[in-house]
């Protein structure tokens, strides 16, 4: 797979015929904004009220991507030692986003940090340990970003699902606790459901890859002029990485969330308990 990444880099450098390796100017980017104008017009025409959001999203994406482009250009240009810092910023941002989404789980930010770090470090660690990808900034940062984004969504899903399900089923949970089950045992049916709902999107995505969608890494390599066979090898690694990363993150998120939703005395936390008479 190192070869696939090398091939992509080589293709990006050589600029094959019909590829997108020639420079896209900011003028070209400006022209593509025409499509946003159409979307804003459609929103206005149908009175969707999304015009402002679309403009803000367009502006934000421009600023964020230009900034990250310059940062990556700097890091890839011989400043590879910054890679852990870049990944840490990504993890912190993802944990903040995921923790905010599941704010009703006490300590949701810490749960998110734990799940995202384990999911990311676990997968990148395995890929690096087996030398499947080179441990260079150019490989680790893009792959890390993919796994962080994916496990962030999984972590949010697991935390919110587990909390909401336990709240909705608190009568049954407390019946189980009353029979002498531990908090782990009492939450197990909902624990499993949350794990399934957290992991199913990446399982489904892996099932239909190539049939329904040509995913990002593969598309990017093909557009950059790499051979489709090299591109699919990288894509397979990415899919398996996401599957593994999401499994790691879901397991950690569910385990830590259960701990946050029960007291050490195997009681539901006060906000989840039955309303007394």
């Amino acid at each position: 797979m190192i070869a696939a990444l090398d091939a992509a880099a080589h293709a990006a450098g050589s600029g094959g015929s019909g590829t997108l390796t020639g420079p896209i100017s900011f003028g070209d980017v400006g022209l593509s904004v025409f499509l946003v104008v159409i979307a804003v017009a459609a929103s206005r025409w149908r009175r969707l009220g999304l015009e402002r959001d679309m403009v803000v999203a367009t502006g934000r994406s421009f600023v964020q991507l230009v900034a990250v482009g310059y940062v990556l250009d700097f890091v890839f240009g011989g400043q590879g030692w910054l890679t852990p810092i870049v990944l840490s910023v990504m993890v912190a941002t993802a944990a903040w986003t995921s923790g905010s989404r599941a704010r009703q789980v006490p300590g949701s930010y810490l749960v998110a940090v734990g799940a995202i770090v384990v999911g990311t470090a676990g997968t990148l660690g395995v890929l690096g340990a087996f030398r499947i990808v080179p441990l260079s900034a150019r490989a680790v940062i893009p792959l890390g970003s993919m796994v962080i984004t994916s496990v962030m969504n999984t972590t949010s899903l697991v935390m919110t699902r587990l909390r909401d399900d336990l709240a909705a089923s608190r009568r049954e949970v407390e019946a189980r606790l009353s029979l002498g089950q531990t908090s782990y045992e009492a939450s197990l049916p909902w624990h499993r459901q949350a794990l399934r709902s957290g992991m199913l999107p990446s399982v489904d995505q892996t099932k239909v890859v190539g049939l329904v969608a040509l995913p990002g890494a593969m598309t990017g390599m093909i557009l950059a002029g790499a051979s489709p066979l090299a591109a699919i090898r990288l894509q397979l690694v990415v899919m398996y990485m996401l599957l593994g990363g999401n499994a790691f993150a879901a397991l950690v998120a569910a385990q830590l969330t259960v701990r946050r939703l029960f007291t050490p005395a195997h009681q539901l936390i006060r906000s989840l308990r039955q309303v007394p008479d």
Partner: peptide
């Protein structure tokens, strides 16, 4: 020990709960 306490003191709620 809370688990032993709950074994000794069984609480049954107002609405019966049937597990799957």
């Amino acid at each position: 020990d809370v688990l032993e306490l709950r074994r000794r003191v069984q609480l049954v709620g107002q609405v019966p709960v049937a597990f799957p």
